[in-house]
Write a protein that binds this DNA or RNA. Structure first.
Length: 257
DNA sequence: ATGGTGGCCCGGCCA
């Protein structure tokens, strides 16, 4: 099975590219972030035409997440599901082919002194609590999406340039480590130890062509999936060409679990 | 150079 995640920065703007990418890469499950759509606007029919079921959680202008699957889509849940706000449609989960799959869009902390930074840390804690309450780390579970955290200094183009900034701060990295401590593996990093492989590049200043990126889009999996993973890739080709998202898709291949 | 680009959708906000 092939699991993928992609922050598309508006599915309305990106649908043709998403359709082309599905056709080319043939993932079994695709998690989307930043659809920027209300549920009524989500193009379920376009995905159905390609053989995929889909579940969306969105409010319109900002955020919005989805799970798109051709191996089944059951037990869909939106948000934290316990009455706690998920800060504007940032989490949707479903059972896909025997795997519990979560599409997450972690809040951007903006700056270390921002109230949004505290929201981001709390959100990551809430995600850990959700997993602890609803999942078993001995079972196949995927948590993937845009975490807005670069796990370590290999994941940013210039650590010195990020001093005092979000995405790299110790509390954010510790919150991500705590999440993984529940029983998740950053499987791309397990298979690729080299620095300088990124999933996001700012639109501004020619960042992509200058290699100024960050790896903030992660596929976290439980150990039973991690040991069965044969490949983990970031498709930076998808960042090229006309009207790209500022994020590249990430996908992993799992043989058996 | 406190900028830049792109998406929302038309004045800023957000990333």
């Amino acid at each position: 099975m092939r699991f993928a995640t992609w922050n598309v920065n508006s599915l309305t703007a990106r649908l043709p590219r998403v359709e082309a990418w599905l056709e080319e890469v043939q993932p079994d499950v695709l998690c989307l972030q930043e659809t920027k759509q209300a549920d009524a606007a989500f193009p379920h029919e376009a995905f159905a035409a390609m053989g995929y079921e889909s579940a969306h959680h969105g409010e319109g202008r900002w955020n919005g997440v989805a799970v798109v699957s051709r191996v089944g889509l059951e037990r869909v849940t939106r948000g934290f599901g316990d009455g706690h706000d998920d800060a504007g449609a940032r989490l949707v989960a479903a059972d896909c082919g025997g795997v519990r799959v979560h599409s997450v869009y972690v809040p951007n902390g903006r700056s270390l002194d921002s109230e949004h930074y505290a929201v981001k840390l709390a959100w990551l804690g809430g995600l850990r609590d959700l997993l602890a309450a609803t999942c078993d780390p001995s079972q196949p579970v995927v948590v993937c999406g845009d975490f807005n955290v670069a796990p370590d200094d290999r994941d940013v183009w210039d650590p010195a340039a990020f001093e005092g900034m979000t995405h790299v701060s110790t509390p954010e990295r510790e919150a991500l480590e705590s999440l993984c401590g529940w029983g998740l593996v950053d499987v791309f990093r397990r298979l690729h130890v080299e620095p300088g492989v990124y999933s996001w590049w700012d639109y501004r200043g020619g960042s992509f062509h200058r290699g100024h990126g960050m790896r903030i889009d992660l596929v976290l999996v439980t150990e039973s999936l991690a040991v069965a993973t044969t490949a983990a890739e970031i498709d930076r080709e998808a960042r090229k060409g006309p009207r790209p998202s500022d994020h590249a898709p990430v996908y992993v291949d799992v043989t058996r679990f």
